[in-house]
Nucleic acid binder design. Sequence first.
DNA 1: CCCTTATAGTTACCTAGGTAACTATTTTGA
DNA 2: TCAAAATAGTTACCTAGGTAACTATAAGGG
Lengths: 137, 137
Amino acid sequence: MISHELFHTLHQLSRHLTNKLNEALKPLGIYSAQWAVIFTLKKRGSLTQTELCDYLFVEAPPMTRTIQRLVKQGYVKQVPGKDKREKHVQLTDEAINEYPRWEIVVNEVNQGLLNHFPEASQEELLKLQNSWLQQIL
Amino acid sequence: MISHELFHTLHQLSRHLTNKLNEALKPLGIYSAQWAVIFTLKKRGSLTQTELCDYLFVEAPPMTRTIQRLVKQGYVKQVPGKDKREKHVQLTDEAINEYPRWEIVVNEVNQGLLNHFPEASQEELLKLQNSWLQQIL
DNA sequence: CCCTTATAGTTACCTAGGTAACTATTTTGA
DNA sequence: TCAAAATAGTTACCTAGGTAACTATAAGGG
């Protein structure tokens, strides 16, 4: 009956990592959920909200809220598409300007969280997580 | 730069497992956070709220809320200790009666989530998670 | 063609968990 | 001893993410 401990530890890890990221992002005025959207848009370019939801495995309502906050802060704009139901979300110039600064902070946190955890273990962990996710999704 | 994917996958896994657990617990009228407290109290007996927080790595305010809901549902009671600041939390007879029924449901979910994921992988994953947690806590 | 169904997004409201500020006790140290 | 500091718990308010119910637009089938 290892399952309880497995789930518990996973949950703790996830919370701890999110907390650390939010703590580091605080002086920048953005939150972890916003960062996830920004990071995705930087990598993939313009996406509809549904595409963002699919990629980040998040339901539509929280995505709406996160995007609305980003719009209000001027980091993201919603461009209506040919299909009038869709909103194509993209980074503003301001966000693109700020991005390198944000990336440095995030990379520092990530490295701080990983630098005593061997790279081989990281890869093994990622492999196990992906394999588990595939099976239950 | 594996870190983004590692964190992202971990986060997804954690959310997915919690969602599945909540879905299964819904007909029983309890939520995953409540189950975590019940499970801990069953294993450890009477604990103060601070001890529960420490064990579950959760801050005091969410613990207060979870316990207040359990008290309202009659599954938990708060017994004042010698130190009048403390509240010793323990399961009621009703909770002890219901426990086996809850345990069956939870074990079924857990098994459903794990039955295509080899036991050796589970153990390896737990080992990696624990080792990482130790280093960043 | 038009009515039905499906899809994109929003709103309202729920749990989960975080910080800051507070109260009430207990512990400590000058 | 007793004032200051620490601790246990609560309250208020924030983000994160979930479901249900809704609106508006697009697609399909008779």
